[in-house]
């Protein structure tokens, strides 16, 4: 390969390749140090988290056999042999699933509304006052850092068992998550329309209504739909702490070893989540193409 090209003088090649080797050695050294730190962190956290690979290997059979067992009915027949018996609680669970979806829906809707009201205060281009912006951002951060199940636990004590605490918990978490995304969308808008409205004597509200909203609405809707998808999953476990939905029946089935019920409920949840995923993805695709066509 090198015959036809011009060859550098030997001492220069020597110099260059020495430099190359040095760079390579430096990089190898960095990688090695990184690997050692990673290994130490793994050992330390393995110790803290009481990792026992022995137990895992000994009992890994239980994991597969658990998945085996949930596909057998009480009388020892495979679940597929008697669909009616397998999904005996189809209507009951279906109703719970509808509740779960409604919890996710209400939580997303109210959360999106509040996030909408707050996001303009957290955006640097619309709220130059650092104090208000700081407060809004910290509030949103708090809302999304505390997991929704924790809010649900507290709300169950305050509002009583049932779907109400579930909705409120999802709402608070959604405010935090959507508020951040919304404010980032607002920060990326074209400011010319807003400046135009302010220059012609418009109020802050008018500048948001006619200058900002037309630019951000498709994005807002798209993010809200994505959040709805996530919230459906979140709502499916709200019942674990007594905050309504299908989770109640699921945790009961797992705890009381109603094996075939576990698989039936899980399959219903997975199917619902997949349908919602596909539906929202279609809608979001429509929204983004709409935005591009604008």
């Amino acid at each position: 390969m090198t015959q036809s090209t011009i060859r550098l003088p030997d001492h220069q090649i020597e110099l260059l390749s020495a430099g190359y080797r040095q760079e390579l050695a430096k990089r190898r050294q960095m990688t090695l140090i990184g690997a050692v730190i990673l290994a130490l962190a793994v050992l330390l956290s393995g110790f803290v988290a009481e990792v026992r690979p022995g137990v895992l290997f000994e009992n890994i059979g239980k994991f597969t056999s658990y998945f085996g067992r949930i596909f057998y009915l009480d009388n020892g027949a495979l679940v597929f042999s008697d669909i009616g018996e397998w999904f005996w609680g189809f209507w009951k669970w279906g109703k719970q699933l509808v509740d779960t979806l409604l919890i996710a829906y209400l939580g997303t809707l109210f959360g999106a509304i509040f996030a909408f009201l707050i996001c303009f205060s957290a955006a640097i281009n619309l709220t130059p006052k650092a104090g208000i912006r700081f407060a809004a951002r910290r509030y949103l951060e708090f809302c999304r850092t505390v997991p929704e199940i924790v809010f649900a636990l507290i709300f169950v004590v305050a509002f009583g068992l049932g779907p109400v605490p579930g909705v409120l918990a999802i709402m608070i978490h959604t405010i935090g998550a959507l508020g951040k995304l919304f404010s980032e969308v607002v920060e990326n808008i074209d400011m010319k329309p807003v400046e135009g409205i302010i220059a012609s004597g418009g109020t802050r509200w008018q500048s948001i209504r006619y200058g900002v909203l037309p630019q951000v609405l498709p994005n807002f809707a798209s993010y809200a739909l994505l959040r709805f998808e996530i919230n459906v999953r979140g709502a499916s476990v709200m019942g674990f702490v007594g905050a309504g939905g299908i989770g109640q029946d699921l945790i009961e089935a797992i705890r009381k070893f109603y094996y075939s019920d576990v698989s039936a409920i899980l399959l219903m949840i997975i199917a619902t989540v997949m349908i919602i995923d596909i539906g929202t993805e279609r809608l979001r695709h429509r929204l983004t193409t709409m935005e591009q066509g604008r």
Partner: peptide, 19 residues
């Protein structure tokens, strides 16, 4: 399937605890 559900299933395999 949510993380909490996986946790419940794994508890059946390796017992209660951080593992």
């Amino acid at each position: 399937v949510d993380t909490l559900i996986w946790a419940l299933i794994w508890i059946n395999v390796v017992g209660l605890g951080p593992f």
